Simulated assay, not measured.
Amino acid sequence: MDTMTPQTLTILAIVAAVALIALAAYLIHRSRQSQRLRERFGSEYDRAVRTHKNRGQAEAELLRREDRVEHLTIVPLTPADAARFSEAWTALQADFVDNPRSVVDQADALVRELMAKRGYPLADFEHRAADVSVHHPSVVSNYRAAQLIRQRNLQGEVETEELRKAVVHYRALFDELLEVREQRPGVRPAQSIRPTRPMEVRS
């Protein structure tokens, strides 16, 4: 029976040590990546894990979102566009009491128009929500909640109070998307251009 030489044993020990170091480095990388994604996406991270029922698949999906959005050209609004969108929201909000069902659709359309203006592609809802979650994870749950109410509204199953909540949810995303380009020194700061006062839709 052949016996391994000291040189062979040394080589095997080195190979084993390298493998252990590589494994440790991989596990550290995965742990740090998980932590980063958890911090960036917040509740959307938890939703992805529940949806995929596997943390690895969920994180792979979130990484694909990041990569996809990184290749988009997302731009801030000009002050003129910000003012136009703010005025449109004011008009929409004023119409709620008389026409709450229609206003929910108007709010959805205005948010989609604003997303397009910023540079987000207008694919199906899930893709829109996924793209928005990369830069605006704190309000994507609002967007999903508004969409669910809107779908039920199309079937005539929603009371006025829920319609009001849908508009409030849309407003949360609307406010997040209403980012304005810096102006020249000496000009009124673009950031001071905001939409209307906090939502006061009444049923």
Score class of each variant (00 low, 15 high):
Tyr170Ile: 01
Gln93Asp: 03
Phe85Asn: 02
Arg47Val: 09
Pro79Asp: 11
Arg144Leu: 06
Glu61Gly: 05
Ala17Phe: 08
Val134Asn: 02
Ala48Lys: 01
Ala146Leu: 06
Ala83Pro: 06
Ala129Leu: 05
Phe96Ser: 01
Ile74Arg: 02
Ala17Thr: 12
Ala16Glu: 14
Met4Val: 11
Ser141Pro: 01
Leu77Met: 13
Gln33Lys: 15
Arg164Asn: 00
Ser43Ala: 15
Val139Cys: 02
His127Ala: 12
Thr196Glu: 00
Gln93Thr: 06
Tyr26Arg: 15
Val158Arg: 00
Glu161Phe: 10
Leu122Thr: 08
Tyr120Leu: 02
Ala25Asn: 12
Pro137Leu: 11
Leu77Gln: 04
Phe125His: 01
Ile149Pro: 00
Ala83Glu: 13
Arg152Ser: 10
Arg144Gly: 00
Ala94Glu: 05
Ala24Thr: 15
Val15Gly: 08
Arg55Val: 15
Lys165Asp: 07
Asn142Met: 01
Asp67Phe: 07
Gly156Ser: 06
Arg112Ile: 07
Ala16Asn: 11
Pro137Ala: 10
Val15Leu: 15
Phe41Thr: 07
Phe125Cys: 01
Arg40Trp: 15
Phe125Ile: 00
Thr160Ala: 08
Gln33Trp: 12
Val69Thr: 08
Thr160Phe: 07
Asp108Pro: 00
Asp98His: 12
Ala91His: 03
Glu66Gln: 15
Asp131Gln: 08
Phe174Trp: 01
Arg38Gln: 13
His52Pro: 02
Phe174Ser: 02
Leu114Glu: 01
Met115Tyr: 01
Val168Leu: 01
Leu178Arg: 07
Glu126Pro: 03
Asn54His: 14
Thr160Ser: 09
Gly56His: 12
Gln155His: 08
Ser138Asn: 08
Gln7Arg: 13
Arg65Cys: 06
Arg38Tyr: 09
Glu39Ser: 13
Leu77Arg: 06
Arg202Ile: 06
Ile74Ser: 04
Ala107Phe: 02
His127Ser: 12
Gln93Pro: 00
Tyr45Ser: 09
Arg118Asp: 04
Leu154Phe: 04
Val134Arg: 00
Ala22Glu: 11
Ile14Leu: 09
Leu62Ile: 07
Ala109Arg: 04
Ala109Val: 11
His169Gly: 00
Val139Glu: 02
Ala88Asn: 10
Leu12Asn: 13
Arg181Tyr: 02
Gln35Ile: 15
Gln93Ala: 07
Glu200Gln: 12
Ala17Glu: 08
Tyr170Pro: 00
Ser133Gln: 05
Leu114Gly: 01
Glu66Tyr: 11
Phe85Tyr: 15
Ala60Leu: 11
Val69Ala: 04
Thr3Trp: 15
Leu77Phe: 14
Tyr170His: 03
Arg36Cys: 12
Ser31Trp: 14
Arg128Ser: 04
